[in-house]
């Protein structure tokens, strides 16, 4: 279930005066069941990259392998790829179109050739996964709240039972409650079904919380692809790219600079808390002696 990219490059309006690189020479390989956070400012090539991964955009040069197979080789089943590599676009609720939630979620599975009954089962499973109860099945998708719509739309992709799930800023524009619900849903999916997840986000805080590895794009190039700790270690470079590490990372960095023996690569409140309390306990013990 791995995606492997080799020298991916995409040029907009190639051969004209306005040609511009969206993505340059990107190579990486994902591991099974991994949660990847994809970070980069607007225009860094994130959207182009993820659309290449499920074949919606064909790279100008470079290759993509899914489970070792070149997805742009002759006769490769693109539909099957899109089922296995599910892509949830930004603001996915804007694709809802059916008269009721359940029918909308069935759209994907039916396109994949499932019978009506199979599709319905798949849809119900997916809706359950995202926490949308039976009483919503027959409602119009447009009557749902913002967060619910978003989850129903994600269910539309989940219903195809993808092995890899790519989400483009799943929490964008939601309020804190909606945001937590979406992110927790994704984290739970990851835990329960062990999908490989690639989540695009602007928020370092969110990515720090959930990702095993972070991919940082800048100006179409892959700058870092490493554990959050390793990536946050470069918080000063991140700043230069117009990205910022979590506030916590800055705090820890400054504390370290002032001589405290703390790990300056943490990105979550819990980790920072643990670090500082460790020092606090040490000091308490010392003064008790």
């Amino acid at each position: 279930m791995s995606i492997k990219a080799e020298g991916l490059t995409y040029i907009y309006q190639a051969g004209t005066a306005m040609e511009s690189y969206a993505v340059r020479d990107i190579s990486f390989e994902t591991k099974d069941g991994e949660f990847i956070g994809l970070i980069g400012h607007t225009g860094s090539g994130k959207s182009t990259l993820i659309q290449q991964l499920n074949g919606l955009i064909k790279p100008t040069s470079g290759k993509i392998y899914y489970n070792g197979e070149d997805i742009h080789s002759e006769g490769y089943d693109m539909k099957r790829l899109r089922q296995r590599v599910g892509l949830v676009f930004q603001y996915p609720e804007y694709q809802l179109f059916e008269t009721d939630v359940l029918t909308d979620v069935k759209f994907g599975p039916k396109n994949m050739g499932m019978s009506d009954i199979e599709a319905e089962e798949a849809a119900k499973r997916a809706l359950k996964l995202v926490g949308i109860g039976e009483d919503f099945y027959k409602r119009s998708p447009f009557e749902l709240s913002g967060g619910q719509k978003r989850r129903a739309a994600i269910a539309g992709v989940l219903a195809m039972d993808p092995e890899v799930l790519i989400l483009d800023e799943p929490a964008a524009g939601l309020d804190p409650l909606g945001k937590t619900e979406i992110l927790e849903t994704i984290a739970r999916l990851h835990r329960e079904r062990n999908n490989t997840i690639i989540m695009v986000s602007h928020s370092m805080e969110d990515v720090a919380e959930y990702a095993d590895r972070i991919m940082v794009l800048d100006d179409g190039k892959l700058v870092y692809f490493d554990s959050p700790k390793e990536v946050f270690r470069h918080y000063e470079e991140l700043e230069k790219m117009g990205l910022s590490a979590p506030q916590i990372t800055y705090l820890m960095g400054d504390l370290k600079k002032r001589g405290l023996q703390v790990d300056d690569s943490v990105g979550t409140v819990a980790e920072a808390c643990r670090e500082i309390l460790r020092l606090w306990k040490e000091k308490e013990e010392k003064s008790a002696e």
């Binding site: 919606l56 899109r82 892509l87 676009f89 994907g108 992709v157 195809m160």
Partner: peptide
């Protein structure tokens, strides 16, 4: 594109 990602 979004609908194509859902197999349309």
């Amino acid at each position: 594109k979004a609908q194509m990602a859902r197999g349309a």
